[in-house]
């Protein structure tokens, strides 16, 4: 009985911790599958987390925050698309620049709005999400999987990343497909951020994503740029995190496991996963290719 309870608690903690990662990984998936490298996921997440928290607090409704995160995600995604698709800036550098821009802009805005240096007021407990973002994350993975392999526009996305010339020859604008994909990427990753500030916590605090955007990117690569394996990779990372929380202070016989060892677990899992068990992970062929 107690074991079941423990297992359930662990399962729910894993799913909760995975939610922001899943959204961000799906965001990365959209962008990278269309052929655009995306290291700006962290920035997308931060902007979603921040705007979600501000609007959610303003209207005392998590759903309003969620909608606002969608909008800001589309905008930031469009900004990134403008730089890398229209202006053909280096994708890695623009991505990092976007991260830095968001990190710098948020404290600036909070100073004006709340006279604070980067945090927002908290949402009341009844205004927060209970499980909705988690359900939406699971749905998103399902929908994306279906869409990618079963619909015409899904195949456009695949071809934009694998063989853009072929897509061009069939009369579809690679540029437009990539634009749409990068905007969607922004929106999904922003939702990932919003699920942090509206679901896992109750307000925005400075740099609260704590590298989750990059973890999501690692999950995407580990998952071979496919939605379901990437989703599973997110679960694995979140599981390591949830285990880490429960293993702190656990004893094996007389010896207490040192907390430092337990805390490296998530990172250890990431490294082992990426270096050892992944097998061959092939990136989309035209990833990073410009000029369409």
């Amino acid at each position: 009985m107690e074991l079941t309870a423990l297992f359930l608690a662990l399962l729910f903690a894993t799913l909760r911790l995975a939610t922001p990662l899943i959204f961000a990984a799906m965001g990365g998936f959209m962008s990278e599958r269309s052929g655009v490298v995306n290291v700006a996921l962290e920035g997308f997440m931060l902007s979603g987390a921040f705007v979600g928290a501000v609007v959610g607090h303003q209207f005392a409704s998590a759903w309003m925050g969620w909608a606002a995160a969608l909008l800001i995600g589309l905008c930031v995604g469009a900004l990134y698309a403008l730089f890398v698709i229209e202006l053909k800036a280096d994708q890695i550098i623009s991505g990092m620049a976007l991260n830095l821009l968001v990190m710098g802009l948020i404290p600036f805005i909070t100073k004006i709005l709340y006279n604070s240096t980067g945090s927002t007021p908290a949402l009341l407990v009844e205004d927060r999400f209970r499980v909705e973002p988690l359900v939406m994350a699971l749905l998103l993975v399902g929908v994306l999987t279906f869409w990618l392999y079963k619909t015409r526009s899904g195949l456009w996305l695949l071809f934009a990343g694998e063989h853009p010339q072929a897509l061009l020859a069939s009369g579809v604008s690679v540029r437009k497909v990539r634009w749409a994909a990068v905007c969607a990427s922004g929106a999904f990753a922003a939702w990932g951020g919003a699920s942090l500030s509206l679901f896992l916590a109750s307000s925005y605090s400075p740099l609260m994503t704590g590298g989750r955007g990059f973890m999501a990117l690692a999950a995407l690569i580990f998952g071979k740029w496919k939605p379901v394996p990437a989703f599973l990779a997110c679960l694995l990372f979140a599981f390591a995190d949830a285990m880490q929380i429960r293993l702190q202070g656990v004893r094996i016989g007389e010896v207490e496991i040192p907390v430092q060892f337990v805390q490296i677990l998530p990172y250890l899992v990431t490294i082992i996963a990426l270096a050892g068990f992944i097998g061959k992970s092939r990136s989309p062929k035209a990833l990073g290719q410009e000029g369409f």
């Binding site: 608690a9 911790l17 942090l196 916590a201 740099l207 609260m208 995190d241 949830a242 429960r246």
Partner: peptide, 15 residues
């Protein structure tokens, strides 16, 4: 980063 990670602190507390 531990000073700024309410999501993780919440999970610890829930556990």
């Amino acid at each position: 980063e531990a000073w700024n990670n309410p999501a993780k602190a919440k999970e610890l507390a829930l556990a």
